[in-house]
Amino acid sequence: MTVNILYFAGLREALGTGAESVELPPDAATVGALRAALGQRHPELLTAKNLRAAVNQQMVGMDAPVADGDEVAFFPPVTGG
């Protein structure tokens, strides 16, 4: 099961990448579990304060489900306007 991951703003800079495609571990069925799995390679994902996420371009909580082919984004709290 493959998901496309996007990172934005300070998180993108800290990780040194804005996008990657990953095989979803079988036990990572939620955004929070995906975050924990990716955090093994990107510890900044685990230490980021108030990390926000979106699945298929909709803002969601860490308990939201993730499915094959989803676009999952992680980013800091927004600061537009």
């Binding site: 934005f8 703003a9 300070g10 108030n50 979106a54 803002m59 984004a73 980013f75 800091p76 709290p77 927004v78 600061t79 537009g80 306007g81």
Partner: peptide, 19 residues
């Protein structure tokens, strides 16, 4: 709710704005 992020440039360097 809208995914925008501001990065400020200062003489000491650039910094992301905190929410």
């Amino acid at each position: 709710q809208a995914p925008f992020w501001k990065k400020e440039e200062t003489p000491e360097g650039a910094r992301w704005v905190d929410a």
